[in-house]
Each structure stands twice: as structure tokens, then as C-alpha cells.
Design a binder for these strands. Structure first.
Lengths: 339, 339
DNA sequence: CTGACGCCTGCCAGCGCTGTCATAAAGCCG
DNA sequence: CGGCTTTATGACAGCGCTGGCAGGCGTCAG
């Protein structure tokens, strides 16, 4: 009752050899149906769960994968994680969530240590770890399968899942333009996320197409967090001729803009339109709820994990659809509204 | 270079036996200083990381602990996790974060499976898993050490960390009363969190002490999430004689109240004071920033983990201080303000 | 000088599984 | 029916580490 059951106990209970139990557990071929059933019954009766440790030691795989992240938006990584977990559960695989510091000189060693210690047989990288050269190198040296979620760079040999950040930012910018906005402030994301550049590029592309001149003065750097959104907003809203709309590269920064607008008594969306990106829970929690680009975070995690499990078939790059979500933080203006 | 280094490689490189290497790795006594240094050098040179799997299999401990959670506030568990991770890193222990569903009839089996599979040597329970009878029973049957973060019930044999929820809610209510509020709406937390009752109790205690009658009509159930905050607010703010203040049992629900107030054009804090609980990041992200009770989440996680590591010394129950954080969502009213 | 004891190190078994190989039974073909 | 392949099962070694034990050496009291 107290001591854990081992494969030997199961074998004895089922009247077969340990190897046969092992075969059943690993769904191998060449086990007669009635044998399989006997074993399965014994497993249930003894509440047997195979030791990952013993498995990892004896075999080639451990049934564990790891998620590496260095992302400061809890909502974002929470949702990614959720999707990964679901996929893992379907597959009976355990997940190790591991935060890393991609700026640290020891990242590679740490990731290497993680692999050696835990015998994980696959890794999921979330942005911005996806583009950390030291980590990628280490993973390749060890020839461990991995997939990347929202990577910024292309990579032939390994799978990835992502959305079209350029097009998404273009869509949002175009939406604002179609709503009559001509001066649209933009807050760039954290410089270590490749997506930041792509979103900026999409913004510029939409502007270009509409024949609106790009104004560097109303394009400010940010770091994907609330505080940097406030900071950028302080500059943008302090301008004598302030933009009529602000498009922030993620929801956290958009929330910062909203907060400052409230504080300064600028009505959103009546006097200022604000748009975000990601559609994390945050977008609906602030007031007014944010018009934003919905990124299917959960699905990104889920799909990425599935790709990892089916890696044998070669690298696959899957683009998932994004969606513009119109809420109450943006409004159409007529040209005469512009001061 | 490619194949992982084993303890044998290290032993050979250092010119000692594997057992001696093992002694150095485990900081055992009885190793000469120069031997220790030779070994440590070899470890560094070979970039050796001991296999957790082999350790777990051979020895009594695996150097892994798990965090069990079933909490839908990403900010909250993120911060708890943060604290735990720091403590783990100090100790060279790996953390497995595991979501569970305490309402599922299989929780116990799942937790048991986790223990069997991973050989973890300790568990941290976060609320509300802290009070899930099935889980507690399973853990006790297996005699695995665990600590509880913010448990609702007392438990002699195992350590815990918590804040005084009753006092904290009392403090906040008293603060509102001292600001002239007499009709204070209250939104209860999720019924499966013991803290919910305690906060309600603190609210009532403060009311009692001030000689204010308890009005069941303005005390509504919630579920610790944004949506339930909105729902409760719809009722409270729809009353002909609505409360002048609303105290929500956590920040997520307070954010819901804020959102509805905005939508209905009720100015916060001028026409309505709103208070939250937890002081997660969310409290500063909404507008106006929430007056709330700061719970030292990170420290709760860190302290809990330390208690787990030092469990041998017997169970310890540690109460951490809370703090009332005054921001802009509350305001004093004079009696005549009341309609 | 001897014995007792503390310090340091190495040998070996074995943790709970899977891989490899051997072997037996069953199916198939002309 | 003999020789072939396919299916089904078991024996056994060994993954990388630690626990238990044996044993050598130095120190110190008697």
C-alpha cells in the first residue's frame, strides 16, 4: 500500500515478464490482446505509474519536455503554457517550465545543465528565447529536438509556429487609418523580441500604402511592459500636436497609455484612440476594453507541442491566423475632428 | 564533446573513484580539500551535470520539488512561482510546476502519479489546493513532505506560510469606514478558497466594531475573476441606494467593478470608492490604480520553499505581514455626500 | 608499542526500467 | 510437410548514480 509499485510487482500480478509489461506500457507491437488486458488490469489494480527516472536512464526517452521562457508578461506565457500543457496531457508527457535569462552569459551552460540533469527529450522555446544565439547553438550541438514559438528569424532544420506579425500590425494600422486617423503614434516592443521589428514594419507599410508620411517623432521605444507604455505615452500625449491614435505593440503597453490618458483627463476613445496587440486577458480588464490583435496564444502553444512530438517528419513552419478585435478603445474620427 | 559526461568520466579525469566524486557533489564530509578541488575542477572542465534520474533511482532524493496549483489569477501564481524559483535556485533544486483540477475526482490519483513518476522529494501547495482533502490525504499516505501557502485550515504536522486574511480585510474595511463610508459593498471570493471566508469575516468584524449594521443585500458572491466582479458590480451599482464603496476580495474582481463603473459613467473615486486585495500587478495597471491590501506573494513562495527544505526541524507556521496600499481608487467622503 | 578511534577512499550491489538478443509458437507457401 | 517469415514472450545486461560496507592511514591515550 505504502511502498510504490514497480514494474516487477505488475509483472508478478499479471503473471508475465517485466519486459512484457514494458511493452504494454510503451504500446509496442507484438503483444496478444488478452496479455495486454491482463497487464492493464494489474496496472490499474496496483495504481502503478512508471518511474520517469528509470525510464530516462534505461531508454532513449524520458517522456519529459521543457518550456524555456524569458517573458515578463505573465498573461502571455500563462496562455502559451496552457496550450502546451494540454498537448502534453494528451500525450502523457510531463512539462518542465523553466525561466531563463537570455541576457546572462551563462544561459547556454544553464540550458545544457537542464538537459543533462533532466534527460528531457524535447524543448519548446518561446519568444525571445527563440532568438537567443547561445541557446540555439547549445541545442544544436546536443542535437535535441526543439520547436520555436513566434521566432523572429527563419530556421530551416527546426519547426516553428507563429503569426504574421507584419500583416497583423499592418491590419491594425490600416484599421486606424480607415477610421480617419492620420497621426498614429506607435510604441515599439522590447528590442530583444524580433516581433517588435516586424510589428513596426507592418505599421510603416500600412502608412506607406495610405500615403501617410512616417513621423519618427511619434514612434517611441518600449519594453512590452506597463511602465514603458506609460513612459511613451507621457511623451506622446505631452506633444502640442498630439496623435489622434496610439498603437502599442502589446496590450501591457496599451494599458499604460490608457492609464496616463485617464490621469490627464483625455477621454478614450473620444479624444484618443488606443490599440493594443496580443489580446491577453488584460485587454478586457482595462477600461475601455482594448481594440487589439488577437494572437491565438493557447493554440500557438498547443500546435508547437504537437509539432515537437511529430518532429521526425521534418521541420514544419506553421502560420496561425490572427484576428483584429474591435472593442471600445478606438473610434472613427472625421477629418475635421483633427485640431 | 557531444556525448554527455558521466560521473565516471569525472572520476577518471580527477583520478579518483566515482564514489568520491559523488561525495563531493553531495557535499558529504570526509573528503580531503585537495581531492575535493581536483574533482571540482574536473566537473567544471567536463561541464558535468549529474543526472537527476540516476540520482533519484539510486538515492533517496531527487533534488526536485513540485508546485501544485489550481488558481486562475495568472499574476498571483506567477509571483508565488517566482519566489519559489528563487529559493530553489539557491538550493540547486529543480521545480516542477503542475496545474491540477481540485474539483476532479481523479486529483488524488494524479498527484500520486506525479510523485511516483517524478520521484519529487517535496511539494508546495498553493491555495486552494492547500485545502483539498483528497490531495492532503494522498500526500499523508505517502509521507512526502509538503508545505502549504495560504492554507485555510490548520494542520499540525506540516509547515505553512500565510497572512492574516481576517485582519487584512478588517484593516481595509476599517480604512473605508474611517474615510466616512457607511455602506460598503463586499464581493466574496471563490468558495473553494478558505481565504474567502476569512476576508468576509474580517469585513464583518470591522463593521461590527464600528457599529455598522451588516447588510446581506450588499454582500455578493464572486469567483476571484474579472467577470464575477463585473457581475456583482452590476447588482450593486444598479441599486437605487447604492453603496458608496465596494471592497472586492481580490484585485481581479475589483478591476471588474472599476470597468462597470466606467461604463456606467460613475466616477471612481469621486462617486464610488473601490478597494481590492492582493496587490498583484493588475492593481497598478487599471485606472485608477487600486487601493488594495498588499500580500507579499513572492515572499510567501520563497519562505514556503525554505520551510520545505528545513522540514526536518518540525512543522512551522509563519505569518507574513500584509500592508494596506492606498492608491487612487478610494476617497474620503463627508457624511453629507451620501445621497 | 598497542589498540581504539576518527578520517578518507574505493568496491560493489542495486534502484526501475528498456534495448538487445534468444527462443518458441503460429501462419504461410508450394 | 519442410522451410520460411511473422508474431509473441522472456532472460539478461546495463543506464548513472548512491548506500552500505570494508579497509587503509594517521593520531592519540595508555
Amino acid at each position: 500500500m505504502n511502498a510504490r509499485a514497480t514494474i516487477h510487482d505488475v509483472a508478478q500480478a499479471a503473471g508475465v515478464s517485466v519486459k512484457t509489461v514494458s511493452r504494454v506500457l510503451n504500446k509496442e507491437r507484438y503483444v496478444r490482446d488478452d496479455t495486454r488486458q491482463k497487464v492493464e488490469e494489474a496496472v490499474r489494480a496496483l495504481r502503478f505509474s512508471p518511474s520517469i527516472a528509470a525510464r530516462a536512464l534505461a531508454g532513449r526517452k524520458s517522456g519529459q519536455i521543457a518550456l524555456l521562457y524569458d517573458n515578463h508578461s505573465p498573461y502571455y506565457i500563462h496562455q502559451i503554457q496552457q496550450g502546451i500543457w494540454e498537448a502534453c496531457r494528451e500525450e502523457g508527457v510531463r512539462l518542465l517550465a523553466q525561466p531563463v535569462d537570455i541576457a546572462s552569459p551563462d544561459v547556454a551552460r544553464e540550458v545544457g545543465g537542464l538537459i543533462d540533469e533532466t534527460h528531457i527529450d524535447g524543448i519548446i522555446l518561446s519568444s525571445p528565447v527563440t532568438d537567443c544565439a547561445a541557446v540555439l547553438e547549445e541545442l544544436e550541438r546536443r542535437a535535441i529536438p526543439f520547436v520555436r514559438i513566434s521566432p523572429g528569424t527563419n530556421h530551416g532544420v527546426t519547426s516553428s509556429v507563429f503569426i504574421d506579425d507584419v500583416q497583423a500590425a499592418d491590419d491594425m494600422t490600416t484599421y486606424l487609418i480607415n477610421n480617419g486617423h492620420r497621426r498614429i503614434g506607435f510604441i515599439i516592443g522590447h528590442s530583444n523580441h524580433m516581433a517588435s521589428n516586424e510589428r513596426l514594419f507592418g505599421y510603416r507599410r500600412a502608412l506607406d500604402r495610405a500615403g501617410i508620411e512616417y513621423e519618427p517623432a511619434i514612434v517611441l521605444p518600449g519594453e512590452f511592459d506597463f511602465a514603458s507604455g506609460v513612459k511613451a505615452a507621457e511623451i506622446l500625449l505631452g506633444m502640442p500636436d498630439r496623435p489622434t491614435a496610439i498603437f502599442a505593440s502589446n496590450d501591457d503597453m496599451a494599458a499604460g497609455v490608457l492609464a496616463l490618458a485617464h490621469k490627464q483627463g483625455i477621454a478614450v476613445p473620444d479624444q484618443l484612440s488606443v490599440a493594443g496587440f496580443d489580446d491577453t486577458v488584460l485587454a478586457q480588464v482595462v477600461y475601455p476594453p482594448l481594440t487589439t490583435v488577437r494572437q491565438p496564444t493557447r493554440t500557438l502553444g498547443h500546435t508547437g507541442t504537437r509539432l515537437l512530438f511529430t518532429m521526425g517528419a521534418g521541420a514544419e513552419h506553421r502560420r496561425l491566423p490572427h484576428e483584429l478585435i474591435e472593442r471600445q478603445s478606438t473610434r472613427a474620427i472625421s477629418p475635421k475632428d483633427v485640431s
